[in-house]
């Protein structure tokens, strides 16, 4: 049986001046449906590039990215746009909320892109923001903004939730809270979640930990019994 995600010989190069730099180089791994995956690595290891390629935000130079058997590495811009709309939820390090829209409107913006999305109010209630629906991002704390961002990503019922350093801009308590939310969602909805981070502390909570360095996979660790998020020391 094929895995939910299969990455084969993936390459992404950039032209920097006269040099060609490989941000992702010959990567290969697999991820199963419902797994909570953590991608670890230092700055410049290719974590965000990999996440962008998985989320259809960027196009591979070569190689294959099979999502449920479909090679998105060969998708056109139009197909990638459709893929992001229907299959992907993105959580950014700096939340990337639309500043002139309220929390509910930010979520609605995403929900209205799919036919059977989840109710935005319910989603915001689920992330603990029932009383902050009509607040603008500037009126919310960092943690609250990130929870709006998670609600926005999840209301589309994506097949894959991609989180790029979701706690990078938060203090440790808030970061732990956010990670708990993501972990709970993964377990509750059998949602495939990929979290890019350089916080090794959360590695024990993941079903799979992929370690990167210089654009290459240097280690893939599988945890048969991942710890619940509340048992991790931050």
């Amino acid at each position: 049986m094929k895995s939910f995600i299969q990455i084969n010989n993936l390459l992404r190069t950039y032209q920097v001046g006269e040099n060609e730099v490989a941000a992702v180089n010959s990567m290969e791994f697999e991820i199963e449906q419902g797994e909570f995956v953590v991608i670890l690595g230092p700055s410049g290891s290719g974590k965000s590039t990999l996440l962008n390629l998985l989320g259809g935000m960027d196009q591979a130079t070569s190689g294959t990215i099979l999502i449920e058997g479909n090679n998105i590495a060969q998708y056109s811009l139009e197909e990638l746009s459709r893929y992001r709309r229907s299959d992907i939820g993105f959580v950014f390090q700096f939340y990337n909320l639309i500043p002139n829209l309220t929390a509910k409107e930010n979520v609605d913006l995403s929900r209205k892109l799919c036919k059977d999305g989840l109710d935005s109010t319910e989603m915001l209630e689920a992330v603990g923001l029932a009383k902050r629906l009509h607040h603008f991002p500037a009126e919310l704390s960092g943690g609250e903004q990130q929870r709006v961002s998670i609600a926005r990503a999840l209301c589309k019922k994506p097949k894959l939730l991609l989180c790029d350093e979701p706690t990078g801009a938060l203090d440790s308590n808030t970061g732990a809270l956010i990670m708990s939310v993501l972990w709970d969602i993964s377990k509750k909805y059998n949602q495939t979640v990929i979290v890019v981070t350089h916080n090794a502390a959360i590695a024990d909570t993941a079903n799979k930990v992929i370690r990167l360095k210089d654009g290459k996979v240097i280690d893939i660790q599988i945890n048969e019994n991942p710890l619940p998020m509340n048992e991790v020391a931050w």
Binding site: M57, R82, F90, N96
Partner: peptide, 14 residues
Amino acid sequence: RVQIGTLMSLGIHI
């Protein structure tokens, strides 16, 4: 720019 990128990442058509 970031808002435009975010709208794109949500899958809103160009």
